[in-house]
Amino acid sequence: MKITVKSFATLRDHMDAEFAIEIQESATIADLLTMLTERYPKLEGEIFLEDGTLKDFVNILLNGRNIAFIKGLDSILSEGDRIALFPPAGGG
């Protein structure tokens, strides 16, 4: 099945800004992130801590909805879904 991934801010330094990707049926956000870090190795350090957990304040939206309010990394993807990846933001 095909989904669309869009990256924002500093993540665009490590991956394409927007692209379609083929992924297996019933794949999860975790599966997608594994695929993305294999395709874009520098992405891993941007979104994951050394122990493999997602960094605080990394926001992942599934069709405009934060995965934290669905099933987190276990959120299941469907044909045509749109994923948006936002890095931690700093400043003040």
Rank of each mutant, 00 (worst) to 15 (best):
K71A: 13
N59T: 13
V58S: 08
H14N: 11
M1P: 10
I70M: 12
D81F: 01
D16Y: 09
N66S: 14
E25A: 13
I29E: 09
A20S: 15
S7G: 06
A27M: 01
M1G: 12
A17E: 14
A89V: 15
F19Q: 08
L61A: 05
I23G: 10
D56P: 11
K55D: 02
L32S: 01
D51S: 05
I60G: 05
I67D: 04
L73V: 10
A17W: 08
L85F: 01
P88D: 10
F69M: 12
L73S: 12
E38D: 13
I76C: 08
M15E: 07
A30H: 13
I76F: 02
T4Y: 04
K42R: 14
V58R: 02
T37S: 07
F69G: 09
I47K: 09
A20V: 13
L54Q: 03
H14L: 03
I21L: 11
I83L: 07
L62V: 08
N59I: 11
E50A: 15
R65F: 11
M1I: 04
L62P: 04
E38S: 12
I60S: 06
E18N: 02
H14F: 09
N63F: 01
E79W: 05
I3S: 04
G45K: 15
L43D: 06
D13M: 09
S75W: 08
K6M: 07
T34R: 14
L85V: 04
D74Y: 09
I29G: 08
G90N: 11
K42L: 12
D31G: 06
M1A: 11
I21W: 06
L43K: 04
A68F: 12
M35V: 13
L43V: 02
H14M: 00
E50R: 15
L11G: 02
L77F: 03
